[in-house]
Design a protein around this nucleic acid. Structure first.
Lengths: 149, 149
DNA sequence: ACCTCTGCTGATAACTAATATCGTTTAGTT
DNA sequence: AACTAAACGATATTAGTTATCAGCAGAGGT
């Protein structure tokens, strides 16, 4: 019997195949990196640097391409925290609606999970003709340690 | 007696002075442009192009600097709709909490105003130590015409 | 096992938005 | 009117990302 991560990884390999993309070693390695780094919001360069240790043969262009591909397949969630670079994290469906709390003091990004936005989406649906598929919410403020100094 | 826009503009000139910034012709022109384009989300280059007609002497660097300055003073709100460029709109305090509805079909950005997020902010405040100052919400989906085809 | 064919890769050039630099100009003050 | 720090325009530079292209590789057919 296989563990959860392997199972989940296999599902994603299957998803690649279903969409006529090949399951390459590079795509496997990059996906596994994100399984190792759950909760982190990695930029393309950070991914590339992390790969240097065990997979220095993987090029930066491949990193960009792979992240973009996974984002389109909704395997990764693409986001930006106003530092003019895109960041990615595993789109764990279990915690689909988690919002980011961005500290304007130290820049740290924490998370908050909930489904309260459903009410807001419902209101928009009834008041407008807009059909909502997804949302992104960012809260700006001060984390505990920045607030206390 | 002066009209509302002039009054509002004067308040902003005053705000500049209070923060030891000079009230230059360039800053006046760019601010007035945003009063003329309420509801639009302009990029730096779009502002620059709009200025070409009547004020071709204003340089692109000045546009970038001025937009950034106004954003720091909360006169403009800085945002991005995943097209890898920053956009700005007048931060009208009357409609402070308006969210953006981004159509994934045609890219059009519309708006929805509400204060329902207060409830969510309150929940975060009670459950975490994070002190929220501001938030940005983006909803993704299909606008009426894209949905119907 | 081998061939083929298409998609993928790595290296790197090109692009784009934004920022930094620098000599000149100007707003606000004296 | 003179002064001075701030702001300006032109342009070089940077940073993140995307495009290009020759070579490679892995699935399917023979």
């Amino acid at each position: 019997m296989r563990n959860k991560v392997e199972n989940k990884a296999d599902q994603i390999y299957e998803l690649l195949k279903q969409n006529d993309f090949k399951v390459t070693p590079q795509r496997k390695v990059i996906l596994n990196l994100f399984f190792d780094k759950i909760g982190e919001h990695l930029s393309a360069e950070e991914v590339y640097n992390l790969l240097q240790e065990n997979h220095p043969e993987i090029g930066l262009a491949t990193v960009y391409r792979t992240l973009e591909l996974y984002a389109e397949l909704d395997v990764l969630q693409k986001m930006s925290f106003d530092d003019s670079k895109n960041r990615y994290e595993l789109n764990n469906n279990d915690i689909h609606h988690h919002h980011h709390l961005i500290c304007t003091g130290c820049g740290k990004v924490s998370e908050f999970s909930d489904d309260l936005l459903e009410a807001l989406e419902e209101q928009i649906t009834t008041k407008t003709k807009f059909k909502i598929m997804d949302h992104k919410v960012k809260f700006y403020g001060k984390c505990e340690s920045c607030y206390n100094k």
